[in-house]
Nucleic acid binder design. Structure first.
Lengths: 252, 252
DNA sequence: TTTCATATTTCACATTATGAAATTGATTGT
DNA sequence: ACAATCAATTTCATAATGTGAAATATGAAA
């Protein structure tokens, strides 16, 4: 390590320096200029720029000059929508909650689990409430099955193997075949249900939320005592999902 | 190099892998999960994430988990506005050209020069035309002096030393003191002039264009035969600059 | 065709990044 | 309150990587 800052890695410092130099020019820049701006030997700059290009952080224009690559747009959008999603979701969640008088949850996926990040609590005395910050495995939640669905078939089987699909109730989908069927159905329908799979007595209707780049950034769901859950709410959840995705710039 | 792809640098591949893992989780992620997703040893992931954090590509939330950092938002915005600026500029340039019947130019800065990237040609038979793709030194153009101005005082003197401020006409500002005075005036006024400094007989009025993050992304200017240039056009150029910046998301 | 500037490739080796092990800190269970 | 467990962080010997100087290739200009 070349300095007291023990969080320094020379190649990363150099790569970021090159990206900064690209960000400071308003158009594309030649290898010579980038090497000069970053203080690097041209062959070093050349190789680092090549590695960044392979990953889409840099690309080359038609004259062979370098510029910032579109991967940064994608990641930048992830940062923006992370900042936006809770703020944008609040009025939509309250709208949906007021339509059906039940709790509305906002979740995000973290690896094999959904994490409850916000909620609009239902107005009835007997209601479902999830603790913000709490988690549930993907396969036992409506939105978690959709999130898993969007990761692709290889991810479904890897998830099933990794977790063993533990049962939470008699209704939990515990075989890979049943899970795959449910996921495929949910992707087709554009919504999914939790039929007392996580907890007896609790039923959910969930949809996915997309950002401007089309990526899934969250899940939105109604949770209610199973006897009150009403299939008539499905279009309302889907409408809320569309509204929130649109607020995040998704127009797919 | 570990594979045939000669554009590979291991640390960059690893850093990008970690950033991708962060992008795929919808919320922040722990070190353990990131190491597992990326196949890296925890101490290796720890150091790489630390280096990325120093540069703002990653940050840690209040629970100590990692997430994509705001520098990516900034760079992503640079990519977006590069894509947008020419498209958004076209109607504004045509509007401005129609107001004054003279050529309107769009430029970007590349190191010590402005590059002409688009134009709306004036309608009079005798008119100023710059070739798209051609360049001029910053100090002899209206917008170039403003662009240099926004880089800060240290950059002004470095530029003067590096280039020697070559004279193009008797009107070129060739002393550092004269250039500094002109730059400061332009930053105060919110526009700058080229008084036959690049070419005898040609006068310009220019303003800077900003993107949503407040960065300068381009310059916009009218170029006319000096005897036709009219100070009454200054508010029109400023209005065109505001319109174009607003279209790019700037609200400052 | 020749010249020149920039981009790209090669390679010996100096320096960096690595991973295994140890240590520290936080959380959970008793 | 204390012990156990787990994740994060630090240390350090060294293997492997990234480096820069030199050579070569390429394309534009004269």
């Amino acid at each position: 390590m070349k300095n007291d800052n023990h969080s320094s890695i020379q190649v990363i410092d150099r790569a970021v320096g090159l990206l900064q130099a690209l960000a400071q020019n308003d158009d594309s820049a030649s290898l010579k200029i980038l090497a000069a701006d970053s203080g690097l030997h041209a062959s070093t700059a050349f190789r680092i720029l090549g590695a960044l290009t392979v990953h889409g952080l840099v690309d080359k224009d038609t004259q062979g000059n370098y510029r910032l690559g579109t991967r940064l747009l994608t990641w930048g959008e992830r940062v923006r929508s992370r900042m936006d999603v809770r703020v944008e979701a609040r009025p939509v969640m309250e709208w949906l909650r007021d339509q059906v008088q039940e709790t509305v949850n906002l979740t995000v996926r973290e690896h094999d689990e959904v994490v409850y990040v916000d909620r609009a609590i239902g107005r009835r005395a007997i209601r479902v409430e999830q603790v913000v910050g709490s988690r549930a495995p993907l396969h036992v939640t409506a939105v978690g099955k959709l999130m898993l669905g969007r990761l692709g078939a290889a991810a479904w089987s890897a998830y099933a193997q990794r977790t063993g699909l533990p049962r939470f109730t008699d209704n939990t989908l515990s075989s890979p075949a049943a899970l795959v069927q449910e996921i495929e159905q949910g992707l087709r329908d554009g919504y999914a249900l939790d039929n007392e799979e996580a907890e007896l007595g609790v039923g959910c209707i969930g949809v996915l939320i997309h950002d401007a780049s089309g990526s899934v950034v969250a899940g939105l769901s109604i949770s209610a005592p199973i006897e009150r859950r009403d299939p008539a709410w499905i279009p309302l959840v889907q409408e809320a999902g569309r509204r929130l995705s649109a607020r995040l710039g998704y127009h797919g």
